[in-house]
Design a protein around this nucleic acid. Structure first.
Lengths: 215, 215
DNA sequence: CTTGACACTGAACGCACGTTCATGCTAAAC
DNA sequence: GTTTAGCATGAACGTGCGTTCAGTGTCAAG
């Protein structure tokens, strides 16, 4: 693959990140603004280069119609990534969500971005949701392990759901139990730690829909 | 959630699907064209309705900047989907990939579409990849179970990779073993079935990068 | 010294695209 | 009967946005 210049790689990353956080592609003027260019033509030059080198595709003459054709040059902190460490799309990963909800959280809570692999699709963002990196073994009996990513959706829990709850300023994964007529409570899914938590004044941040484990 | 009319639901589905296959959102005239409206204003009406009912969001005045806020009305074949069966984006799921590779496969091989949950993101389509629904317990020792979705990326396997391979016309998941100097072979990850497969003339269709299990 | 990449300014041009105004039809709600 | 939602046509209007033309400057290769 042809090498990108510093600037080109910055532009590419911006495009990717913009779509990753907003859900639609930037316009040329959006890019111009971000880099404080005084002319849109500065952007055009870089886009032409990125296109010629095969990193992006576009529908010419039509607004906000990018395609990322090649893996996005990773911001190489790790130097020796094997030529094929690719995945597909970013979603914000929180190690912890202290006070509130992730949309109110400054990006300090974000410990990285999970990339999920898909063939052809763009994601819709139907629902407020996010990924959470699991620490510890509290859900081991549900087969969720340290290092897995749990995909959380913000909605009201129902009996039997696995939820992300805020306990003592830390977000933890617990099973939500609510038998009819009784007050709900939370329960760790680990035979070694049979803790129970009253549901009072601890906020449930969302319900786990799925988890994803890298191989 | 407010109910959508037939037409509104069609529009919503089109928007979702358009983004799902193209990677960017449709313009109002794109929608107009699809439904053979003679006026763009027909679209506007439906968009206003969808917006008012909370299904979509947009940046007004800016092209192709949709957001799907709520679950997309599922094309209800199953009638009684619980009100909240949401995830986020389609990627093709193959139950089996007979002869070749998924891009050469007619859509008959596609048994559904996996939806993956992401906060805000669109996916890049950096790499040929797809999801495969796991049948059977052949990878149980790697903790991959019947019903899980494995995300496959098309690339050359290396020693220790879990690969999707074509054996007897069926795609199966196996561990790829290649010790230096020796010919490579495949191995099931289930103590009960310690089968070995020679790598000769059976095609490896891709390497498993991750798996996803719905909760 | 020239050539050619790379990076950028500045000013237009013109279509794509979102938006609005005006109009008309049907069916359900009050 | 009058109103309101839904669905649609038809004709503009205005601007977001991609694109082009022309020109400036640096720096390394030849």
């Amino acid at each position: 693959m042809k090498h990108l210049t510093e600037r080109q790689s910055e532009i590419l990353q911006f495009i990717d990140h913009y779509e990753g956080t907003r859900g639609y592609w930037p316009s040329i003027r959006d890019i111009q603004l971000r880099f404080h260019f005084k002319s849109t033509n500065a952007v055009m030059g870089h886009l032409r280069a990125l296109e010629k080198k095969g990193y992006i595709g576009r529908i010419h003459g039509q607004a906000r119609t990018f395609r990322l054709l090649h893996r996005v040059a990773p911001s190489n902190d790790e130097k020796d990534m094997p030529e094929d460490a690719i995945e597909l799309k970013e979603l914000p990963v929180y190690g912890n969500i202290a006070a509130g909800y992730p949309d109110q959280v400054e990006s300090g809570g974000e410990i990285g971005r999970l990339q999920v692999d898909v063939q052809t699709a763009g994601f819709s963002r139907s629902q407020r949701s996010f990924a959470l990196k699991v620490r510890g073994e509290s859900m081991i009996d549900a087969d969720i392990r340290d290092g897995d990513f749990v995909i959380i959706e913000q909605r009201e829990p129902r009996d039997g759901d696995i939820v992300a709850a805020l306990i003592d300023g830390e977000t933890t994964l617990k099973r939500f139990i609510q038998k009819s007529g009784e007050p709900p409570y939370l329960k760790a899914e680990n035979a070694a730690f049979p803790e129970l938590y009253p549901i009072n004044d601890l906020s449930v941040q969302g319900v786990a829909k799925a988890f994803l484990r890298s191989l």
